[in-house]
Every structure is written in structure tokens, then in C-alpha cells.
Simulated scan of single mutants.
Amino acid sequence: MAIDGVRVHGASGQPVLLLPGGAEACDGFFPGLVEGLVADPGCRVIVHDRPGTGTAAAEGTLAGAADHLSALIDRLGCGPVVVVGQSLGGAVGVLLARAHPEQVAGLVLLDPTVINDPRTCAALERMTRVLGSAAALPGLRSLLPRVLRAAVVRSTRRQRLRPDCEAAQLRMADLDIPVLARAVRGITELSRGLREADLPRVPSVVVTADRKPGAAMRRGHVRLADAFGGEVVCWPGATHGVHLDHPDETLATVREVVTRVSAAA
């Protein structure tokens, strides 16, 4: 079913809302996940590019993302949803759960941006702002994207990903840096205003990349999981793109949370 650019796959079952990382388009971002969830346990999977990201024609802000998604869920008449968010999409999922807890039945956060860590968010916003400004300079407008793409291609070749996951990662290599900088804008202020005590207790899993236990990202993920009353999992060798280097585990984790949500309904 398609409604004004929003695609809902599956005719019945627990609704699942997919939130891709960065400013990426949702279609094809999570290889195998839509088909796998529709087949088992039988979900309705919402594929949507919020304003300011992907193929969306309308401009939008990170600060407005939660209200936009809440209105979308109301319009579709399919709440509450299980949210699956990667990177910045994970941060958006956290913001949605805080602002509209009645719309969120469960969460799977895939190496989410630590919206609960103002210092890390400030560094991220500063870095993307600098890259966005650099990408606008005549001498770097074409060079910088080529350099970043070459780095992604080299990394992808080393990883030996599943073919559909490799294709998805290579699509993301064509990064629009100014668009990403706009998508991240305001995250520092949002992070400073977020209190972990305000987050609802819902069935949830936070998947963290295979990094050192003392890393700021991992510590932030542990705090997020504690706030939601969920658990942290880490798969050996997992990178920031956990949905691409561990697609089967990602699907199994989402299925498990959907099953818990359905059992509690």
C-alpha cells in the first residue's frame, strides 16, 4: 500500500517503522528486513523518508522529526509501532519515544547516535558542519565526495558483505554532505534537553558496534538501554553498519522484539 509516498508492506500484523541513518532514503537501506518481517511473523512495515532526508521533497529538521512521525502514524492509523532505527535514525526513534510514548510499542536501536550524550552530539554536529562548509567550496565540491566514496569502497571490499548488503553500502557511499549536515543540525541542543529519566519503559534492544567497553558510544548505549528497560547486545566484528554486516542477526532481533510486543498486547 502506498499513501503520498509512504509505502506500507504487508496487509496485517504488528506495524514496524524503519528509520535509516543519516539523511539516507529508507528504500533499500535495510536489506532483507522488510521481506523478512512481512514473511515472519507477519508485520506491516512502514517505509518512509521524513522531510529533509532521502527522496522527500519537503524540507525538515531533526527537531521536527518526532512530531512528523507521530502525525504520520496517526494518519496511517497503525500505532503503536515497533521502531527500528540505525545511527541518526536511532536517535530519531529515541526522540519519538520520549515525545510520543503512546506511539511506540518497542524499539530496536542499531548503533544509534547517542542523543543522550551532549558532548558526542556536539562533536558530531561540529564535524558535519565543517564538512558541509568544505563541500561547498569550489575546489572541494567534487573532490571531497570522491575521497569519501573511495574510503567506503575500500572498507566494503574488506568486509565481504552479503551481495545485497554490499550494494546498499555502496549506495550510501554517494553521500550528499551538505544534506547530511542539515539533517544533523540541532542535535546538540536536542541532546542537552533530553533526560534519560523521561524515556518510557518499552520492549527494546540496543545493538552496539564491537568497540571497547569504555568507549563513549558504548557507554551511551548502555544508558539508553537501561532507561528503556531493555538490553544491550554486541555482535563480534559488528561495525557502525550493523544492519549490513549482521543482517540475519538484525532480522532475528527485530522479530524477537515484535514477538514480545505482540505477546504483551
Rank of each mutant, 00 (worst) to 15 (best):
residue 130 V to A: 15
residue 239 T to D: 14
residue 123 A to L: 10
residue 176 D to K: 06
residue 174 D to T: 05
residue 19 L to V: 04
residue 91 A to E: 02
residue 224 L to W: 06
residue 81 V to K: 00
residue 229 G to R: 08
residue 166 E to L: 01
residue 250 T to G: 05
residue 189 E to S: 13
residue 84 V to N: 05
residue 126 R to S: 13
residue 116 N to Q: 05
residue 165 C to A: 12
residue 64 G to S: 09
residue 104 V to G: 13
residue 3 I to N: 08
residue 121 C to E: 14
residue 130 V to S: 10
residue 91 A to L: 09
residue 246 H to N: 08
residue 207 V to K: 10
residue 174 D to P: 07
residue 151 A to M: 12
residue 255 R to K: 08
residue 169 Q to V: 11
residue 172 M to N: 15
residue 80 P to W: 05
residue 9 H to C: 07
residue 221 H to C: 13
residue 45 V to P: 01
residue 192 R to N: 15
residue 249 E to H: 11
residue 118 P to W: 02
residue 81 V to R: 00
residue 263 A to V: 04
residue 71 A to Q: 12
residue 251 L to Y: 01
residue 197 A to E: 05
residue 82 V to A: 00
residue 11 A to H: 07
residue 214 G to Y: 12
residue 147 V to E: 04
residue 59 E to I: 12
residue 195 R to K: 11
residue 138 P to S: 09
residue 255 R to G: 00
residue 53 T to W: 12
residue 123 A to C: 08
residue 157 R to H: 11
residue 138 P to N: 07
residue 23 A to I: 01
residue 150 A to G: 13
residue 4 D to I: 06
residue 262 S to A: 15
residue 202 V to R: 14
residue 19 L to G: 02
residue 29 F to T: 14
residue 228 F to Q: 08
residue 137 L to M: 11
residue 61 T to I: 06
residue 114 V to Q: 13
residue 241 G to C: 14
residue 217 M to Y: 13
residue 63 A to F: 03
residue 90 G to R: 04
residue 70 S to D: 11
residue 149 R to S: 04
residue 163 P to S: 01
residue 147 V to W: 03
residue 209 A to Y: 08
residue 40 D to M: 13
residue 196 E to R: 14
residue 14 Q to D: 02
residue 84 V to R: 02
residue 100 H to Q: 04
residue 57 A to L: 04
residue 28 G to T: 05
residue 40 D to P: 01
residue 212 K to S: 15
residue 250 T to L: 09
residue 198 D to V: 13
residue 135 A to C: 09
residue 199 L to Q: 08
residue 63 A to Q: 14
residue 202 V to A: 10
residue 172 M to K: 07
residue 200 P to E: 06
residue 172 M to P: 10
residue 81 V to P: 01
residue 82 V to M: 06
residue 5 G to D: 02
residue 19 L to D: 00
residue 183 A to K: 04
residue 25 A to R: 12
residue 133 S to W: 13
residue 8 V to K: 00
residue 205 V to T: 04
residue 69 L to Q: 11
residue 260 R to F: 08
residue 196 E to W: 10
residue 209 A to V: 11
residue 95 L to Y: 02
residue 27 D to I: 11
residue 50 R to A: 07
residue 48 H to G: 03
residue 12 S to A: 15
residue 148 L to N: 12
residue 108 V to S: 07
residue 89 G to W: 06
residue 228 F to V: 07
residue 240 H to Y: 03
residue 146 R to V: 13
residue 42 G to D: 04
residue 80 P to G: 01
residue 53 T to H: 02
residue 265 A to P: 00
residue 12 S to Q: 13
residue 250 T to E: 06
residue 123 A to K: 10
residue 263 A to E: 04
residue 69 L to H: 01
residue 72 L to K: 02
residue 212 K to M: 14
residue 16 V to L: 03
residue 26 C to S: 12
residue 122 A to K: 11
residue 117 D to Y: 02
residue 175 L to I: 11
residue 98 R to H: 03
residue 221 H to A: 15
residue 82 V to K: 01
residue 82 V to P: 00
residue 66 A to L: 02
residue 21 G to D: 01
residue 10 G to K: 05
residue 34 V to S: 06
residue 35 E to L: 12
residue 42 G to K: 01
residue 208 T to Y: 08
residue 253 T to Y: 00
residue 203 P to C: 09
residue 233 V to C: 14
residue 253 T to I: 03
residue 200 P to W: 03
residue 133 S to A: 12
residue 210 D to P: 04
residue 13 G to Y: 10
residue 71 A to S: 09
residue 114 V to D: 06
residue 233 V to F: 05
residue 19 L to T: 09
residue 120 T to S: 15
residue 181 A to W: 01
residue 25 A to K: 08
residue 193 G to V: 13
